[in-house]
Computed example of a mutant assay.
Amino acid sequence: MTLDRAVMAFAGAMVLVSLALTQFVHPAWIWLTVFVGANLLQASFTGFCPAAMAFKRLGLKAGVVFR
């Protein structure tokens, strides 16, 4: 798995988990969804992504997905 795909999978999983927590635990968990979306938006403009930095430290390599 490449770094880019790992970040996308992590973001998608976080959105789904936060929506489940919002539904079954407490409505305030929707703020986790807002945070994930805002982080994705700022990362698209700035290139700074804490999740990508964490995955890189765990050993994932950046790679070309489409050739």
Rank of each mutant, 00 (worst) to 15 (best):
R57A: 15
F45Q: 14
L32H: 08
G47H: 10
L19C: 09
T46G: 09
Q23K: 14
S44W: 10
V25Y: 13
V17C: 05
A51T: 09
P27E: 09
L58Y: 10
G63F: 05
Q42E: 14
L60H: 00
T22L: 03
A52M: 09
G37L: 03
V25T: 13
T33C: 08
A38Q: 11
V34N: 05
C49W: 05
V36K: 01
L32D: 00
T22Q: 09
V36T: 01
A28H: 08
T46V: 09
N39D: 11
S44N: 13
P50I: 12
W29V: 02
L16D: 14
R57F: 14
G37D: 02
M53R: 15
Q42R: 15
V15A: 06
G37S: 11
K61P: 00
L40D: 01
Q23C: 10
L19W: 01
L58Q: 12
H26V: 04
L60S: 02
Q23E: 13
V15E: 05
C49F: 06
L40W: 00
P50Q: 12
K61C: 08
A62V: 05
V15L: 15
P50A: 15
P50F: 11
L58C: 11
K61R: 15
V25G: 05
A51I: 10
W31H: 09
L19P: 00
L16E: 14
P27N: 10
S18R: 00
I30A: 00
G59W: 04
R57P: 03
F55T: 02
A52E: 03
A38S: 15
F48D: 12
V36D: 01
V17P: 00
A38T: 13
A38E: 09
N39F: 03
S18N: 07
F45S: 12
V34P: 02
L41V: 14
T46L: 09
A51D: 01
L58D: 07
G37F: 01
L41A: 15
V17Q: 02
Q42C: 13
L41W: 09
Q23D: 11
G37K: 02
C49A: 11
